[in-house]
Amino acid sequence: MLSFIVRRVIETIPTLFIIATLTFFMVRLAPGGPFSSEKNVSPQVLRNLNEHYGLDKPVLAQYAGYLKNIVKGDLGPSFKYPNRTVNELIATSFPVSLELGVLATALALALGLTAGIIASLRPNSLADYAPMTLAMAGICIPTFVVGPLLALLFGLNLGWVNVSGWHSFPDRVLPAITLGLPYAAYIARLCRSGMLEILPQDFIRTARAKGVPEWKIILKHALKGGILPVVSFLGPATAGIITGSFVVETIFQVPGLGRHFVNAAFNRDYTMVPGIALFYGSLMIVFNMLVDIAYAWLNPRIRLGE
């Protein structure tokens, strides 16, 4: 277990290195610079700015310095937000995104697993078709259509919740639903097909022969194998929820990291873009690792690290 984690962490180093390198050079190769949008800057000020951020040095020297700082965990100062470092910006806005992501994932799991299990118990009946059609709708109606529609209906017409901001709990409801729905839909479909694989198996009959109550057969004997496809989906889903939050945070004006990233890209923030990309990269690696551990825990035939 421990050796598995250590090995995985070591394996992530090249990935992170590639991310850092690619983003670093992509940002610098692109036309325009971080200060090009600020029109009324005198050449002297511009030179000072460049000198302050080390942009006057050769690119390779900048790159070496950047890598050195990264190893120390320092993602550098932000170009667009003077006096603030990328680390600080991530530290203040990531908790918001994390909360949104956790709420959305919890919702997706609760909704998706329930719908998937119900559908699998009576395949090809109304109890199967109804949730599965809804799930298809959840996959096909994009977040950025659902979000504004929900905002229009519950925020503006019914006035139940605010459509923007992130102050009290009701503010979190619509963004979490919008972000979670498509994943609930995927999870429902995966859970249904997983359960349909397990339920006709001999060992379910054995459980019945032992007199295990039906609810316990579903939740203890079938679900552990039936949710394996869902668990392997959670890795890519994390990536999806991260990028999905770009849109949701834009729609509902949530002060999270996703919005920062889009803004940073538009503003050619030379440190913010690679910094956030690296952060997201590490996050995805950590989640994929957690998913692998969870998978091995659920499926005793899988041994970690093989």
Binding site: T12, P14, T15, I18, I19, L22, T23, M26, V27, L29, A30, P31, G32, G235, P236, A239, I242, T243, F246, F261, V262, A265, F266, R268, V273, I276, A277, Y280, G281, M284, I285, N288
Partner: peptide
Amino acid sequence: DIMYAFPFTIFVIILMVFF
């Protein structure tokens, strides 16, 4: 496997913004 762990959408965004 390595590519799967890559935040691709982020790269597409960077690519589209910068180029």
